[in-house]
Amino acid sequence: MSSFKEIATKDSCFRAGSTLCPGCMESVAFQNIGRVTDNGVKTIFTIGTSCAEVSTLAFPNVVAWGRGDESSDDFGKSFSILHNVFESAPTLAEATRDVADALTDCGALDRPVQIISTGGDGGAFAIGLRTLLHTIHRRARVTIVILVNEIFANTGFQYSPATMPYADTSTTPAEGAPGNMNPPLDYIHLAIAAGAGMVAQLSPAHGKMFVKAVERSLEVEGTAVIFVPAPCISGWKFEDGQTVELALLGARSGVFPAFMWERGKGGSVKDCSLEASERPDVVDFLAMQRRFAHLVQRDKVTGEVKPKPGREQDIENLKGWVQSNVERMYSLANLK
């Protein structure tokens, strides 16, 4: 394992020039993953249709990928990226792994490759649940990174199966209606049940843990899955400069607790107490985002956050969901 400092000095395969919104967590995640993969091993990314793709892989405008200003003579620094249809990134990654393994098996390739599939929560949990679970189920030796911003951001902030309760999305509007009423899919449990070798829920807001998890994902047996909670400045509607703060608050308050799990070893919830009283109040998390403006309001004088009149019960319901979410994560950590 490299030290956090050491990784910070590496050459990321995610480069300047993307058109991701300033403050998008996806670019922070790519920066970090890009650095971790600068380890002397050839890197191949596959990517699903999403903000992450259309904003980074634009040709002949900027392709914000590649290691170094020019291709290196060192094959171990070389980098490739492949996009096909919306949900196909895990299958593309699995195919790439199989071809590399088959070539190695014949003696035709004597250098290792590391393969990372990436895409959004819509691609993974809605249209692509089949491909996600089956690639995991076949124990493909790839890392699957899913950027969970709880919406279809690229197409205009629609509901996704990861949308949290009460969120205002363009297809679960909160005007005159409660927002999303469907609890999110238990995707962490699904990944474990499908046979993943490693499952994490971590964002770069937990910097050291995040890069360690990415590093570990490249070593474990079978498929490693990293769900990256990814605050979306445009869809969640928060202020500039709050991305990391929001990601930390979301994790600590129990909306998407930091979690690391390995098959055979079990796992743990990090930085998020099982006791509600020991966690930051989820209401503070809600108050930072206008997607919950129908639920809470901040007193302009005292700065205190309160439920909007008539929304008290909804806030209680939401807190109940958060507590059950944290309990769920603790019980998943006990699985071996």
Binding site: F59, S80, L82, V99
Partner: peptide
């Protein structure tokens, strides 16, 4: 190049003209 023996991007999001 292919993705293994190359330093390449395939299946990009391209401008209309391209």
């Amino acid at each position: 190049p292919g993705t293994i023996n190359g330093d390449t991007a395939m299946g990009n999001c391209v401008t209309s003209r391209h």
